[in-house]
């Protein structure tokens, strides 16, 4: 779903005002979640898994997957401070204006998943695209089966959306958190995310799994799921590459014949098995 302006000139950003900033993680690898509202009455309809290009004029543009479900108000995206554009974003305040282009990309096929169980496996900042999925599932609870969220990070300070996830645990949802290094007053699992997954032994029947996180976590989790009987057609992931235009023209984000900005970032594992280049 693209707005009229995008169709006319997909390089022109919308105006979006920052209405909330939440510091998720502090320190050298700081992460902030920005909530923005599109100004000028433009509609920004999107589906879970799509992303947008946020412009900070003078610095450039960065791609972010939209972190909240379209059933929730406004748009959220989480920014890891890592370079030119993201450092400037971290310096902005509520009320500042950024540019927004999108929504781009292939979304998660949430309509195909009706009636199925959903398992999300996330690590570190990879939880961002998964959040838009599980929020969507929670808001459409009657259309789906069981929801299981498995998420972990290095330490408890590196967990994103921690309060929201603990809230879900208290509401009775099946959420399994983990941290890699033991800490005092940590009530949940200690260990790597794939180990937590192995311990939980999810059932592959009528289930769809989505894995997002650092590459090594993804490959080990995939192996764990395969050992448990998951087929490649049941597992989804999101890939990332350096992106510039976001609309399938500049060629930078290509992984072989696929454009991450247009054919992805959501990919099903059997689509990736033919790839020659190791990402």
């Amino acid at each position: 779903m693209i707005s009229a302006q995008s169709i006319q000139n997909p390089y022109l950003p919308f105006k979006a005002e920052i209405i909330d900033i939440k510091q998720e993680v502090k320190g050298a690898r700081a992460i902030k979640t920005f909530k923005v509202k599109v100004v000028d009455g433009e509609r920004f309809d999107y589906q879970p898994g799509q992303g947008c290009l946020v412009s900070v004029f003078g610095r450039g543009e960065s791609w972010f997957t939209i972190a909240n479900s379209p059933t929730r108000p406004d748009l959220e995206f989480s920014v890891l401070k890592t370079g030119k554009v993201t450092t400037k974003l971290h310096e902005l305040n509520v009320g500042d204006v950024v540019g927004l282009r999108g929504p781009h990309g292939r979304p998660f096929p949430v309509d195909d998943w009706r009636g199925m169980n959903i398992l999300t496996v996330g690590g570190g900042i990879g939880q961002t695209p998964l959040r838009s999925v599980y929020q969507y599932i929670i808001d459409n609870y009657n259309d789906y089966g069981d929801l299981t969220i498995v998420y972990g990070a290095r330490t408890s300070r590196d967990l994103v959306y921690k309060d929201e996830l603990i809230d879900l645990i208290n509401q009775g949802y099946s959420v399994h958190l983990s941290i890699d290094i033991p800490e005092e007053s940590w009530e949940y699992f200690v260990g790597y995310v794939p180990d937590n997954l192995r311990r939980l032994k999810p059932n592959p029947e009528n289930t769809v799994a989505i894995i997002c996180g650092p590459p090594i976590m993804i490959s080990i989790s995939l192996k764990v799921l395969k050992d448990l009987g998951f087929k490649e057609e049941q597992v989804y992931t999101t890939l990332e590459r350096r992106m510039k235009c976001g609309i399938g023209k500049c060629g930078r984000c290509r992984i072989e014949s696929k454009y991450v900005c247009r054919d992805g970032p959501v990919f099903r594992y059997d689509e990736l098995s033919g790839l020659l280049e190791k990402t």
Binding site: F57, G58, G60, K244, C245, K249, C250, G251, R252
Partner: peptide, 14 residues
């Protein structure tokens, strides 16, 4: 060959 890069020139205006 058609690859291109996108850059911003000018910090406050440009």
């Amino acid at each position: 060959c058609f690859c291109f890069d996108m850059l911003d020139e000018g910090e406050k205006e440009g």
